[in-house]
Nucleic acid binder design. Structure first.
Lengths: 241, 241
DNA sequence: AACCCATTAGATACGACTAATTCAAGCCCC
DNA sequence: GGGGCTTGAATTAGTCGTATCTAATGGGTT
């Protein structure tokens, strides 16, 4: 979507990356550069560049005389947007979605509190606009329009927090929200209570009421977590939803 | 420390990466592969692999007929451990430390709450041991020993949370804590109140009291934020401490 | 104003050489 | 005779240089 195979090495990565993150090669598996180059019908130079990228993501480790070794999942750079996309596209999508939602529940309330302190008048206006847009699309099967405003809403707050680490989680939030809409997690119309909460959050930020913005956002993310629990009640270590 | 120049391209990255993250090349700057290869006295192949890694970190973007373009800081993969290290080693270390501390203040309380729910007896024991170790090193200029147990304490909790995204922040916490100890942010002995809080967190986790573990951890991270404010009182957008 | 072409710099490919690491055979010492 | 160390051969990634391809840019032409 954002990186549609820029160049040959990119196309190789689009196959190799998902394969590794999906666990098709168990930790410790050894791949040979030459072999891979033949398999993907590219030159060794291209394959080496692809391996370098995988290495920078800590998905693999290349050693002389041995080959390219697949690292255990615990060492992967799980915050790399590319890795996140690959994992969301793979088999352990449910677990990944849960991890990200828990991360959201930690970050977004704090971000909302900071936004209430730091947001400019313009940012407040944009956030409010999104909330209004959500209300407008909350009834009558307008899920796509609702999603659009929902994503923008959360992204604006993360940006308005003034913390670059928070701001960079905008894509993560988008993935989670889009996943919820497009994988039948959401009913025909969004929960009216959630919509109200978003409006109230916008209000709180506009009024620079940080504790209220934080608490209301906490309620939103709590709701998101509960939605997941309904789908995969086993809780934390659910393998497949 | 963890990656001491693996290969030629690694050594190139150790110079180019910090230079870019330090802002030596303003956003939009164009680097030429050939030129860089000459500058670093390596072949183009090696330079291309280095560029690929920088590209995967979203530090640069390479376009035909143009060159290698430095991206604005807002697009960087700021969660990449390598990028974090480069930025911590550079001029905007203070701002980076603040960003990371704010992130801690969001994540660690939630992680502690989850740890209180999920931690095994063995994990509880290890956490308690660390807290005891912190107490033992809290007096008499034993800062290094204190730091060691402090890092282990927070890392164990992040791991015990059962959330992989949280677990991967262990290195971040280590960097922040080490930075505090080694850059004269801490006085001769750590704050006794903070030590007590750590002991109480261990207690709460052992007793599976999630709300208490969360609240106590919040007090710890609040303290960390206040420490930063003492150093750089200008608050959020302090450029230099 | 629209189109075409030359220029340019990255993208790909290939082949040769280098260096490091592993494994095993062989040696020495005990 | 057995265990541990040394040494060397095989293997595979690392590096380099060159040649060719591709695509974006800018200028010139119609």
């Amino acid at each position: 979507m954002s990186t549609p195979g820029r160049g040959l090495h990119g196309r190789v990565l689009e196959t190799l990356g998902p394969a590794i993150t999906a666990g098709e090669y168990p930790p410790g598996s050894v791949l040979r550069t030459d072999e891979l180059a033949q398999t993907f019908e590219v030159s060794r130079s291209v394959m080496r560049e692809a391996v370098r990228v995988l290495e920078s993501m800590h998905l693999v480790e290349s050693r002389r005389r041995v080959g390219v070794i697949v690292r255990p999942a615990a060492e992967w750079n799980v915050y790399d947007p590319q890795v996140i996309r690959w994992r969301l596209a793979g088999a352990d999508r449910p677990r990944q979605l849960r991890s990200l939602t828990v991360l959201r529940s930690a970050v977004e309330p704090i971000a909302a509190g900071l936004a209430a302190r730091h947001a400019t008048a313009e940012q407040c206006a944009e956030i409010t606009e999104c909330a209004i847009g959500m209300v407008a699309h909350s009834r009558g099967h307008k899920l796509e329009g609702y999603l659009h405003h929902d994503v923008a809403f959360h992204r604006l707050i993360l940006n308005a927090s003034g913390n670059e680490m928070f701001a960079r989680l905008g894509d993560v939030v988008e993935e989670v929200l889009a996943g919820r809409t497009h994988h039948a997690v959401m009913f025909d119309d969004p929960d009216p209570a959630a919509v109200t909460l978003h409006v109230q959050v916008a209000e709180a930020i506009r009024e620079h009421d940080a504790p209220r913005a934080e608490e209301l956002t906490r309620e939103i993310t709590e709701g998101a977590l509960q939605e997941l629990d309904i789908l995969a009640p086993n809780g934390h270590f659910t393998a497949s939803g």
